[in-house]
Each structure stands twice: as structure tokens, then as C-alpha cells.
């Protein structure tokens, strides 16, 4: 229940982020018992590289406090959508914070917005969408994979977010988002293999006063098909962008300085003297040796309000004629 708003104290059942080092961050549940593979209740113990942690001990601790492990220590943090994204159990490929951030800003979401998402996948993006639109907005998320939809629903409930989200188990390529959502959405987000088949359905769901759309696709061919569909349907401001984040390791480095001056003179014995090795100290930021060079292309577009759609369709038709 620890995702809804700012929290101070860990309550039983909370999802808690355990921070050990910058590369060792985990999510755990503040629950005394857990179910093992055989289906029996056992004590909930989390094994870390620095020793075991009894999860029951977390209850009542402050978020942001230090906890002792048998061979070291760690810190407990309240989960944020960003921390959740890097610790969540993967059931699919997920979207990461640099792309998520761009999606939320570009979809122009704010508290009160109604947003549609498909597919739900592992719910990485969903958590950030919910934070952006609550308390009086809503997320409608769709996945045709039954277990994924169910797991996501349970997860949202467990995180205390149920009142902000509705999970639907449905194939959106076939039938769109359902008549209940006609003329409801401010924004639609698509992360599925055939976005261009879903885009026509979004027109009905987006408000008559217009709205924003985003499609995330790893392959450029998908992007091309989506963009052509967006043009045909009268979307405007069609824009494709890629965002890659580089994280630096900030370090102080010492470089040895070579003295080559003494070579200019004849040996006088002084070069044999044990001199202190000269070094040059510098602070620098080092990118990782290898980093993701591609996540996906983000295609954004605006569906104009109904009174401006015909004009936009004819404008776009010019562009289409041009390339055909």
C-alpha cells in the first residue's frame, strides 16, 4: 500500500525498496510471512550479499532509515515509480524512466487526465502514469494476456492504487478500447507489436476536443507504418524521437606525470635520486564501458478536435500524395 502519496513509516504489507549500493537495489515486502514453493507459510527472509534480512523487522521503521544486516547495512526507501521500474519483477520487456519521462510530458498528462495504455506488460509505465493523473484522473490499461492483466491488477491493489486504474483483459487490435471509453481519453499510449492496427481505434476513445497519442516501437518499420496511419487519420504534430540516458561514475583520477626534462642534460647523478613521483589529480565523469544504444522510438502525435480534423486530413493528404 506504499505507492499512494508520500509516506513516512513502513506498515505491514508495504512494498519497500532496499538500497545497498547503486547497483544493488531491490524491492521487498514488509511482511512477516511468505509462501514457499510448496505452498506453506514460512518466515519472510530476504537474502542480501551483506547477510539476511527479516522482513518483519522493517515494520514501523521510517522510510529513509538505515537497517543493519548481519554483514553490513542497507537503507529502506519508499517506492517511487522510478524505483519500482528498476526493481520490479519482469514479466515482459519494460519501458525505463528516460522514455517514461518523455512519454508523460509529451502526452501532456496532469492530475485529472484520463489516459489509456496498451499493453500493460509488467506495469512499469503504468505506475508513473498513475502518479501523473491521480487523484481525480484515471488510467485504463489493456493487455490481451490474461495472467499479465490479472497480475497487474493484483499488484495495483497491493500498491494501494486500485481507485486510479482499471485493468482490462482484451485484444485492442481487434476491437479497440470498448464503447465505455468513447470520447473519454485525453491521451493514449501504445506499446505493442502492431500499433498501426490500434491507432484507428484510438480516434473513438480520444475526446472530441482532441488529445495526444504516443507509440513506443523498437523497430523503424513499425514506426513508418504507424506514422503513415497517423497521417491518414488526420493526426498532426507527428514526431518521432529517441532518448538515451548515460549515467556517469564520478571519480577522482590520478595520472602520473612523466618528467622528460632531465634527458636534455648530461648525467650528473641527480636523476638517480629517489624523487617523489609526480601525479596530476583530476575529477572526471566516466560513462559505463557499455550502455544501451537503443530502447525504442517514441512517436508522438496530436489528434485535433473534431472541428479541425477534416482540414488536417486534407493537409496530410498532400503529404501522403507527395511521397506516393
Amino acid at each position: 500500500m506504499s505507492f499512494d502519496g508520500y509516506k513516512n513509516v513502513i506498515k505491514e504489507g508495504d512494498t519497500v525498496i532496499l538500497y545497498l549500493t547503486i547497483t544493488q537495489v531491490y524491492c521487498i515486502k514488509a511482511e512477516p510471512k511468505t509462501v514457499n514453493k510448496k505452498g506453506n507459510f514460512i518466515e519472510n527472509v530476504f537474502q542480501t550479499p551483506y547477510g539476511a534480512l527479516k522482513c518483519a523487522d522493517l515494520i514501523g521503521k521510517h522510510y529513509g532509515s538505515k537497517i543493519t544486516l548481519s554483514k553490513g547495512w542497507g537503507y529502506v526507501l519508499q517506492p517511487t515509480p522510478e524505483l519500482w521500474t528498476i526493481t520490479l519483477p519482469h514479466r515482459t520487456q519494460i519501458i525505463y524512466t528516460p522514455d517514461i519521462s518523455m512519454i508523460i510530458l509529451q502526452l501532456e498528462l496532469c492530475p485529472g487526465s484520463i489516459v489509456i495504455e496498451s499493453g500493460t506488460g509488467s506495469g512499469s509505465l503504468s505506475h508513473a502514469l498513475i502518479r501523473a493523473v491521480k487523484p481525480h484522473g484515471h488510467l485504463y490499461t489493456f493487455d490481451f494476456h490474461e495472467i499479465r492483466a490479472e497480475t497487474a491488477r493484483d499488484e495495483f491493489e497491493d500498491h494501494g492504487l486500485t481507485s486510479y486504474v482499471t485493468v482490462n483483459n482484451k485484444d485492442v487490435c481487434e476491437s479497440g478500447f470498448g464503447d465505455d471509453l468513447n470520447n473519454k481519453a485525453d491521451a493514449v499510449f501504445l506499446d505493442l507489436p502492431h500499433p498501426w492496427l490500434v491507432i484507428p481505434h484510438t480516434i473513438k476513445s480520444i475526446k472530441d476536443t482532441g488529445g495526444r497519442l504516443c507509440s513506443f516501437s523498437p523497430c523503424i518499420e513499425q514506426v513508418q507504418k504507424s506514422c503513415l496511419m497517423l497521417l491518414k487519420l488526420g493526426f498532426q504534430e507527428i514526431q518521432t524521437v529517441e532518448v538515451l540516458q548515460t549515467q556517469y561514475a564520478v571519480q577522482q583520477r590520478s595520472l602520473p606525470l612523466l618528467n622528460l626534462e632531465f634527458l636534455k642534460n648530461e648525467k650528473d647523478g641527480s636523476e638517480c635520486e629517489k624523487k617523489e613521483r609526480e601525479t596530476f589529480k583530476t575529477i572526471t565523469s566516466i560513462p559505463p564501458a557499455s550502455l544501451p544504444g537503443h530502447t525504442g522510438y517514441l512517436t508522438f502525435a496530436t489528434l485535433p478536435p473534431i472541428w479541425a480534423r477534416n482540414l488536417q486530413i486534407s493537409l496530410n493528404q498532400n503529404d501522403i500524395n507527395n511521397v506516393e
Partner: peptide, 17 residues
């Protein structure tokens, strides 16, 4: 804790057949 320093590479695309 959890101090991170980052920067972004952002690139726009022209998408036409």
C-alpha cells in the same frame, strides 16, 4: 544516498517512406 549523475542523448527522426 543513491547519487546519480546523468545526461541524455536525444534525437529526432524524419519518418517518410
Amino acid at each position: 544516498i543513491y547519487i546519480r549523475l546523468s545526461t541524455n542523448f536525444m534525437r529526432n527522426y524524419q519518418v517518410l517512406p
